[in-house]
Design a protein around this nucleic acid. Structure first.
Lengths: 188, 188
DNA sequence: AAGGTCCATGACAGTCACTGACATCAAGAG
DNA sequence: CTCTTGATGTCAGTGACTGTCATGGACCTT
């Protein structure tokens, strides 16, 4: 047995999501989160840079996954097709986490500061994707535009998945969003 | 002569942009901004909700302008064409403000918190555009996707304009970005 | 086993963004 | 001339976040 309970970081993230859900983000103090996790406020800030970041621990892994899938797409795939491969990979990860995704999404959409943080994570993802596409030989601004398109398509598909009843498949909804997107861009 | 100097709000915005540029956003306190504007910290917060918002006073007008142009596009224009009309209208506004736009953009890109605020303003613009498109009879998710596309295209064109030497025309750069975008979506 | 180092955490004081409550005083209304 | 209005000042308070030093179990060395 260690001197402290294990998984301090995860306990903090859990406590934060619960409290943000129960009372709202602004009505929750960091001291309360730390207390529920059996830690102190100071320790919270050693694990998370600020009060928002505690909800975004997985953003880095998601970005890596998306980038790897795009990198791994066949060399002759068009930019939008490489992005589509990334969309499939990312969609799979969420398949069995809809309850968690819904709780987290509800908390985030209820607060402007949290929305800001989510947007900058998506922007970071977009930047990483654009870089990956350039690495595949896609010139600018096509790389940036394809990356932005991919993120927009994922977001639309993801939100429809969260709103959908029962057993709709995220991968399918994201693919539908991509198809719609291409029709719109074509002038449909 | 009033009891106070006029244009307190504008003086605060000017002082803030100067100080953020000179020392950086984080190294500037609200008390310093207020002092340079000849006011107190408390008065700063009566004009701007927070330390970031002072750089985004014009966001509302820009959104209105964009929305009005899309609303005014010919009734049989495709969604992406209506958005293009909005892009033209917004581009015009910036034509003679490149120096200011550059200073502001440099400050914003130098700081993550300011980037977050910029992103949420663009997201708000996107949401407003999507609503306007739905008002024109465009169904979801086409409306949201066309709106996101419009904002992405503007941002790419805008950044190229800021980076470009001399006398490049913003309207032209944004139109080029739109053309490239449509090619990418088509699978080019 | 004794001693030494490591490192996650605690304790505590401090800065600054932001808010609520109340006071002030020129300008305009009547 | 008086009254009301509204932008500003003053002041006290909360909470996010940081720097610094102390603590003590785990692990390593001998």
């Amino acid at each position: 047995m260690g001197r402290w309970q294990p998984n301090a970081r995860e306990r903090l993230a859990e406590a934060a999501l619960e409290l943000y859900g129960e009372r709202g983000y602004e009505q929750t103090t960091v001291a309360e989160i730390a207390k529920r996790a059996g830690l102190t406020e100071r320790t919270f800030f050693r694990h998370y840079a600020d009060k928002r970041e505690v909800l975004f621990g997985g953003a880095g892994e998601l970005e890596d996954l998306f980038v790897r899938a795009v990198t791994g797409a066949s060399a002759d795939a068009a930019p939008i097709e490489a992005v589509a491969a990334g969309l499939d990979a990312v969609s799979e990860v969420f398949a069995d986490r809809r309850a968690f995704a819904r709780a987290r999404h509800a908390v985030i959409t209820a607060n402007a500061e949290l929305k800001e943080r989510e947007l900058i994570k998506l922007a970071s993802l977009s930047t990483a994707l654009a870089g990956t596409l350039r690495g595949r030989g896609v010139p600018e601004p096509a790389a940036s535009l394809a990356a932005e398109a991919g993120v927009a398509v994922f977001r639309v598909g993801f939100e429809r998945w969260l709103a959908a009843p029962g057993d709709r498949d995220l991968t399918g909804l994201v693919r539908e969003a991509l198809t719609e997107f291409r029709a719109v861009a074509a002038g449909g």
